[in-house]
Design a protein around this nucleic acid. Structure first.
Lengths: 155, 155
DNA sequence: CACAATTAAATTGTACGCAAGTGAATTTTG
DNA sequence: CAAAATTCACTTGCGTACAATTTAATTGTG
């Protein structure tokens, strides 16, 4: 039985080292990205997760909190305080949906819309820092999407 | 001048979408990993970052905080409270280095050492969830290591 | 040797992530 | 149609991350 054999197959000691964990490679690269973005985003007054929310809103303003959460894979426990800060900074506006009072519609303010002009500078700088070709980026992106979908559906 | 051209090259709109950001692929995969580990690590009473620290200590007990920080790329602001919790849970011990009183040496307790026997179960379960071949894992790991090193050295 | 500079760890303050629970609005069902 | 179940956003509590500061110990320099 192949499945049984696979499950009981010994993992070589070398594969158990921290440095050889795929999860750690993803984890530490995520932190490296956050750090690389920091000096650039500081200039426009955004944190990295806030920047991701702005990317979602620049694609489509007027989204309920839940829709943003689905795109970012974050729940309202994370988004509520984050959106409150974006609102305090004058980048977004929050209004109850009159057709469904449970929902809060998030939309860009004029300041929030204008900030989109920074996108080329930001992405240009990160592209330089990542220092890999567009082709390489697409490859990694594709592999990670597959990995992520496996991990998610396994739960 | 090639460098100048590259910097001023327009980024296609499609590449600006949240879903097409390499940083977001890494960010969301990291979260997916944490979620995949959660039910498994809950059984042994570890959080995911705590598990990474344990991996480092299973490789080598008796490490100063700084050494752990270098392997995980975390500073003492993150590690100090995390290690305090591991100590409270009886998995590690912290002692001042008598040769250099500034340093705190972290070492495994008997309970901490014994927990290493869970490593095959944990990694086996995650391997199943990730659902990709050892070859694929090595490929992604290698690509991410390169990416991470670029991002870090750019700063 | 003294004193400035450096280093290690801890602490403080801010901002995620996420589980669990609350409360109000809407849907589903009997 | 009324009660039950569900949905949405918010809040609370805990555990990271990380910048900035603090304290103690060590090293480097004159």
């Amino acid at each position: 039985m192949k499945a049984h054999l696979a499950k009981t197959m010994e993992i070589p000691e070398e594969e158990k080292r921290l440095e050889n964990q795929l999860c750690f490679a993803v984890y530490s690269t995520a932190h490296a990205f956050t750090r690389a973005y920091k000096p650039i985003l500081d200039r426009v007054g955004l944190t990295y997760p806030q920047y991701l929310v702005m990317l979602a809103l620049w694609e489509k303003s007027e989204q309920p909190v839940k829709a943003i959460g689905e795109q970012l894979d974050l729940d309202s426990g994370t988004l509520s305080p984050l959106l409150k800060r974006l609102e305090q900074n004058g980048l977004i506006k929050r209004t109850r949906d009159s057709r469904d009072e449970r929902q809060v519609i998030v939309s860009l303010t004029e300041n929030g819309r204008v900030m989109r002009s920074e996108i080329d500078t930001i992405m240009g700088a990160i592209g330089q820092a990542a220092g890999c070709t567009l082709e390489e980026m697409k490859t990694i992106r594709g592999l990670l999407k597959g990995l992520r979908s496996n991990l998610t559906s396994a739960a």
